[in-house]
């Protein structure tokens, strides 16, 4: 899976979580869209299902999920391994 495909999948995961009318791109600040310490777990679960990975406990903190770009950086090493 190349980077563009990864980003497309991440955006699909976000569709379920951010408000429907909001446009999200790779640099959008997700914290401002309501992703917080509670709701980002939903995103974690969606990413794990989509990419068939298990994100390490140490990586599950909000900073890693503040934009699509950050999420992509988090997910890519799992996809490579």
């Amino acid at each position: 899976m190349n980077r563009e495909e990864t980003i497309t999948e991440i955006l699909a995961c976000l569709e379920d979580i951010v408000p429907a009318q909001v446009q999200v791109d790779r640099t959008t600040d997700l914290m401002k869209l309501g992703i917080n310490s509670m709701t980002f777990i939903r995103l974690v679960v969606a990413l794990e299902e989509t990419f068939e990975i298990e994100i390490d406990d140490e990586s599950i903190y909000l900073d890693n999920f503040k934009s699509v770009e950050h999420i992509c950086q988090l997910v890519e090493p799992y996809l490579a391994s």
């Binding site: 777990i41 939903r42 679960v45 599950i60």
Partner: peptide, 17 residues
């Protein structure tokens, strides 16, 4: 047990939400 922790750590906030 570590895996169980990981699973429940995800399930609890989902149910709360």
């Amino acid at each position: 047990f570590h895996v169980i922790y990981e699973k429940e750590k995800r399930a609890v906030p989902l149910l709360m939400e």
